[in-house]
Amino acid sequence: MAGKKLETFLEQAAAVVQDFFPAGSPVLIPILYSSIVWAVKRKGDLETEVSGLKLWLEPEIVNNKPDEFILDFFKGDQALAETFNLELKNGEIKSLRQAFRALYPVKGLEEPFLQSLFSEELTKGDYRQIAAQFDRRLRLALDEIKAAGDRPEWWPALKKIGENFLSLGWALTAEPELRARLKASLEKNKQTEDEE
């Protein structure tokens, strides 16, 4: 019963946030997730919570890792090793370094915003897609968040979602579960739209 309620809430919340973004935008999960996390912590302000998403996106550390570290990253993860088997076999360190730039923050450092942004690819294990899409999708996501943030009704709408989540008593829902449910709700919404 509680699960059903949560689903309904997430669907409604997604529908509200969806109005601020172009169709099919990848930022819905990260944004909804941030507003809920903000509400659960009940500290700081929502703008900071959402703006704080950008704090981790500094690629400098990642760019300068030694070759051995990069090879170890790919070889140490079975799924990555299988996906990049050819590059590993041929010692194509340049291609691996390029992919590492995208995959290390997502899969190594488990940066929450990026994990939400690429949640679909992570579930499918489509790591090449993450590497290929990384820069473009990230830029798009940040641009979309900025554009939504410029609209006056944006922050109150997001705040309301967070507060409603809290008032319904789901503050203790585990992070991965919450993310998975958000994703399911968004997919369901999309499916309904497609059918219509």
């Binding site: 704090l55 550390i61 570290f69 170890d72 140490g76 190594g108 450092l109 940066e111």
Partner: peptide, 19 residues
Amino acid sequence: PSEEIWRDNDLQVIFCYEQ
């Protein structure tokens, strides 16, 4: 100074351990 560096440092510890 940041969680990003904190996590990267942890992965550095693990990398050195494995080597």
